[in-house]
């Protein structure tokens, strides 16, 4: 009874500053710049991220396609560890977020909980880093506003679907747009915020990935965006790494830098582009940023 009486803002992480942090595999490898920029931003904003001890794979892309039990049991183990630690669990990866939050959602049901083995007791809330920062927008004062920077916020699929675990509206989400507005950038209204980037197909069917991602980038370019901001390492890989191979029979070439929202937030908080590893992308965002006097 007492536990339920907690203020909702605190439940959503608004009132507290310490979180268990689940980086996930991508942020430790191909998306290191996301991890680094996320940690820099959080430190600067007074958010303490404690990396979850002995975290294991969230099961993304393969576990839930192979086994219902594994799909819950793998993230279940991490949920259990987070619940032992007692802090809300935050992750920056959209895939990890989806797996962890779905596991938390499914294990609300006792039968599944038993199935997943060691998940027991109260489960801490699972949050995406965007939600944590969104709850602090009122107190966020940028060091250097990103005035003049037109950003197309790309949410992809996993942050906003399915509804039970979504952090925002599936068709016209606003949470990243709000953040961009707060740090002085101009979030562009556009229609491809939540379209499919091609997800896990870059190796098996790169043609599909290029076609889908190309449409997204063309649309971002059409509204005049200087860059696309993402919150998912897979979206980033598809939109950024495959850009060189896009165009051809599907229409014109397109060059739009794709950056993590944490990198833009980091810039506004005063970090240099190099500290934020903005030079690690395939499509160099630095010309676009320096033309606005931001790099």
């Amino acid at each position: 009874m007492k536990q339920e009486a907690r203020a909702p803002s605190e439940k959503r992480g608004g009132g507290q500053n310490t979180f268990s942090y689940y980086p996930g595999c991508a942020l430790k490898s191909s998306a290191r710049e996301y991890d680094i920029s996320a940690r820099l931003c959080c430190e600067s904003l007074g958010i303490e991220l404690r990396e979850l001890a002995d975290w294991t794979c969230c099961g993304a892309s393969s576990a839930h396609a192979t086994s219902d039990v594994l799909a819950v049991a793998l993230p279940g183990k991490d949920l259990h560890a987070a619940s032992e630690a007692g802090y809300p669990l935050v992750t920056a990866c959209a895939m990890c977020f989806s797996r962890l939050k779905i596991a938390a959602h499914e294990t609300a049901d006792m039968a599944t909980r038993t199935l997943a083995g060691d998940v027991s007791g109260n489960i801490v809330p699972v949050m995406h880093l965007l939600e944590v920062i969104d709850s602090r927008l009122a107190s966020l004062v940028p060091n250097k506003g990103l005035a003049g920077l037109k950003v197309a916020c790309f949410y992809g699929c996993l942050l906003v679907r399915p509804k039970a675990v979504a952090i925002d509206d599936a068709e016209n989400p606003q949470v990243m747009d709000r953040l961009m507005r707060t740090i002085g950038a101009e979030p562009m209204p556009w229609a491809f915020k939540t379209e499919c980037c091609g997800a896990g197909l870059p190796l098996a069917r790169p043609d599909i990935v290029r076609r889908l991602s190309h449409r997204i980038l063309l649309s971002a370019a059409a509204v005049g965006a200087d860059c696309v901001a993402v919150a998912c390492p897979e979206c980033h890989a598809n939109l950024d790494m495959h850009q060189a191979g896009m165009g051809g029979k599907h229409g014109g070439e397109v060059r739009v830098p794709v950056v993590y929202f944490t990198q833009l937030l980091g810039l506004s908080l005063g970090f240099s582009p190099y500290e934020l590893h903005l030079d690690r992308h395939m499509v160099d965002p630095l010309p676009a940023l320096s033309s606005k006097g931001l790099a």
């Binding site: 509206d169 599936a170 068709e171 016209n172 989400p173 209204p189 229609a191």
Partner: peptide, 9 residues
């Protein structure tokens, strides 16, 4: 309310 239809934009 319909984001997919442009939310009135």
């Amino acid at each position: 309310a319909y984001g997919e239809y442009g939310a009135g934009a």
